Amino acid sequence: MRNWLLIFLIIGLAGCRATFVGSETVEKQWKKNGVHLQGKDFGICFDRKESVKTARDKYLQNKKYSERTPEEQNEWDLEIDRLMGIYFDCAYELGYRFKPDLGWCWEESLNMKRCRELKKYRN
């Protein structure tokens, strides 16, 4: 009985943290030997992602959200997905794996879509 109580307490605290503080970013869910993507490896992947941006991408990135047309916003959303794919492929090549924290991928969470997309990087 005590074990169940402890489990519910841990899950409850993790859920409260995500609710009131917000969950960590997706970049913090990539880990290698228990350490999240950071330092030189972060820079390598960031630079790789930045190097493939086109002039149009930079234009859309620098344009304020409120100033983008719906078509431009859709274009930017698709481009963000492509750029994040390049970033995550780089992290995977460097030996990092998508290992989300407890509660990060819960059903009904805002992160659920991203979790489904990144499950191929879990092994």
Rank of each mutant, 00 (worst) to 15 (best):
E24L: 09
E24Q: 15
E24T: 14
E24W: 14
T25S: 14
V26P: 01
E27Q: 13
K28R: 13
Q29K: 02
W30T: 02
K31S: 15
N33S: 14
G34Q: 10
G34M: 10
V35S: 04
H36M: 10
L37G: 03
L37Q: 05
L37I: 07
Q38K: 01
G39K: 00
K40H: 09
G43F: 05
G43I: 07
I44P: 01
I44F: 10
I44A: 12
F46P: 01
F46I: 10
D47K: 12
R48C: 09
R48H: 05
R48Q: 15
K49W: 01
K49D: 13
K49C: 15
K49Y: 08
S51F: 12
V52K: 05
K53E: 12
K53P: 03
T54I: 12
A55N: 11
A55F: 03
R56K: 11
R56T: 04
D57A: 08
D57I: 01
D57K: 02
D57R: 09
D57M: 02
K58W: 07
K58T: 01
Y59C: 05
L60P: 14
L60V: 06
Q61E: 13
Q61S: 08
N62I: 06
K64G: 11
K64T: 05
K64C: 04
Y65W: 00
S66A: 08
E67M: 07
E67W: 04
R68G: 03
T69F: 03
T69N: 06
T69Q: 04
P70Y: 00
P70A: 00
E71M: 02
E71K: 03
E71C: 01
E72M: 00
E75F: 00
W76G: 06
W76S: 07
W76L: 06
W76A: 06
L78D: 10
L78E: 10
E79N: 13
E79W: 01
E79H: 08
I80E: 15
I80Y: 14
D81W: 05
D81F: 08
L83W: 04
M84D: 14
G85D: 14
I86T: 12
Y87T: 04
Y87D: 12
F88H: 09
F88P: 01
D89E: 14
D89W: 00
C90A: 06
A91E: 06
Y92M: 00
Y92I: 01
L94D: 00
G95Q: 06
G95I: 04
R97V: 07
R97I: 02
F98L: 05
K99E: 11
K99I: 11
P100I: 11
P100M: 12
L102K: 02
G103V: 08
W104R: 05
W104G: 12
C105L: 09
C105I: 11
E108V: 09
